[in-house]
Simulated assay, not measured.
Amino acid sequence: MDDQVAAAIAAERESLRNDCRRDAARFARLIAPDFHEFGTSGREFGYEEALRIAASTPEAEQAEVQDMRGMRIADGVVMVKYTSERAGRRAHRTSLWRRTEDGHWQMFHHQGTPAAD
């Protein structure tokens, strides 16, 4: 697997962990200040709301992830795709990650689409 893809997938997996989501400083390092999301609810939101939503994730609702994979779009930009299930709801998800100047990875876009089952 490409090193950049592996790094972005590792960052995505960390962003999904409940202990990361409830640690505002840790989660904030993983999302870019210009972060944008289209949520499974159909709502659109940015950085500040993403921090609030992440912090309020109940412990019992740890996301289960299936078929996570990635693709390098350009040097320092990776798309990660997977299917998640949380609290009985499945969604197809796509995230765009970019490498910062200091070598860290930050998510700058995410989209969740309810899975048709």
Rank of each mutant, 00 (worst) to 15 (best):
E12A: 10
H109L: 12
L16Y: 04
D2P: 02
E12R: 01
E59V: 08
Q111M: 13
A50Y: 00
D34W: 08
T40F: 13
D19G: 08
D23C: 05
A60H: 10
T94L: 12
A54R: 00
A54L: 05
W97F: 14
R29I: 02
R29G: 10
F108H: 07
A6R: 15
E48Q: 14
D102C: 05
I9K: 01
F108A: 06
V77Y: 07
G88A: 10
L51D: 01
A25T: 03
A87S: 14
E59I: 10
Q4A: 15
E85Q: 12
V78M: 11
A10R: 06
I53K: 10
G39S: 13
A74R: 15
T57Y: 13
M68V: 15
V5S: 01
T40Q: 08
A63H: 04
A28Q: 01
I73P: 00
R43Q: 12
A87M: 07
R93L: 07
H36T: 04
A116M: 11
G88L: 06
E14P: 01
H109E: 08
T83V: 15
D117V: 11
F108C: 09
D3Q: 15
D67H: 12
A74I: 06
S41C: 10
E59N: 10
E59Q: 12
G88V: 06
E101A: 12
E48W: 03
Q4V: 05
T113M: 11
F108S: 03
D3E: 15
E48Y: 03
M79T: 02
A11M: 04
M68I: 15
E44D: 09
H104P: 00
W97H: 05
Q111F: 13
G103Y: 11
G70H: 03
G70L: 08
G42M: 13
A87R: 09
H104C: 08
H104L: 06
C20L: 07
H109I: 06
A91Q: 05
E12N: 09
A54K: 02
T83H: 01
D67V: 05
R17A: 14
A28F: 00
D19W: 08
D3R: 09
L30W: 01
G88I: 10
A7R: 06
A116N: 07
R98P: 01
E44Y: 09
Q66M: 08
V5K: 02
R43T: 07
M68H: 09
H92Q: 13
